[in-house]
Simulated scan of single mutants.
Amino acid sequence: MQEEVDFVTIVSGLPRSGTSMMMRMLEAGGIPPVVDHARKPNDDNPLGYYEFEPVKALKEDKSWVAPSCGKVVKVIYKLVYDLPANVNYRVVFMQRELEEVLASQETMMRRDGLDPDTIGRDILLQLFQTEVFEFRRWADAQPNIKMFYADYRQVVADPATKATQIADFLGSGLDHMAMAQVVDPNLYRNRA
């Protein structure tokens, strides 16, 4: 059972880094997700994407953010910069081997009929490394943001321990056992 909180829980990270899995975990633990189900489950995310379309328009409309205290919303790392500074956040940032992230993105692009080779893999790796480094430095300096870095591989390998750590970080009476039970190692398909 979740206690009253004065912050919005954010799940962030690179695309294909395990953010949907973490959203499922937090929902199972007792935090209501802010989602609209506009993006339907598919072969790439068979258990759902847990997305909320208004996140993409944060620069234009932030009105939904403050009322989301006590809830969890998935916000891609590039859009966390656009969250209003007058709201407190606890961010669970998913980290995953960049080779795995790229492999997963390439698989998804091919399924969608796109050519992942149009941008060089080395360029993407370098870009992601730089952007994630800059994001972490920026986020750690924000007074209204507390960060928890969750390694995807470790969460899949030992969900009980990671769920307990995340529940402690969020400090909101989460059911860490229920969180751990929704982790499906069979969905860890792109490995470095």
Rank of each mutant, 00 (worst) to 15 (best):
F169L: 06
F52D: 01
V35K: 13
E27C: 13
M25C: 11
L127R: 15
Q126V: 11
P32C: 12
S68R: 12
K56A: 10
L127H: 15
L58Y: 04
F93K: 06
V72C: 11
V11T: 07
S20M: 12
G13C: 11
R39D: 04
K78F: 05
F128R: 15
D44F: 09
G30F: 02
S17P: 14
F148S: 01
P116R: 14
D112L: 13
L187F: 01
Q126P: 06
D184H: 05
L170P: 09
K74S: 03
V11Q: 03
M94P: 06
G29H: 03
R137K: 15
A85R: 14
Q105R: 12
Y149T: 06
D117T: 15
K74N: 10
G120F: 07
S12G: 12
Q105C: 11
A163K: 00
E99F: 14
V65S: 05
A160L: 13
G29S: 04
H176Q: 02
V73F: 08
F169T: 02
R137G: 09
Q165P: 14
F52Y: 11
P46A: 00
V8P: 06
L26K: 08
N45Y: 15
Y50E: 00
W138I: 13
S104P: 01
M94T: 01
F52N: 09
S68N: 10
L174A: 04
A180K: 00
T118R: 14
P15A: 09
D140T: 06
M179R: 04
G120W: 12
M21L: 14
F128W: 08
G30W: 03
R16K: 12
M94G: 01
V8Q: 02
A192Y: 13
D175H: 08
D168I: 13
Y50L: 09
P159Y: 02
F128M: 14
T130G: 08
N190D: 05
F169S: 00
D82G: 12
P84L: 08
M179K: 00
F7Q: 06
Q2C: 08
V73C: 09
L58H: 04
R136D: 02
V11H: 02
A157F: 05
M177Y: 00
S20W: 06
V35N: 09
D61S: 02
L58G: 07
I76K: 10
T9K: 06
E106Y: 10
E3W: 13
F148W: 00
E97Q: 15
R136L: 07
Y77R: 06
V11G: 04
F52W: 05
R96C: 05
V155C: 01
P143H: 05
V80R: 02
Y77T: 05
D140H: 14
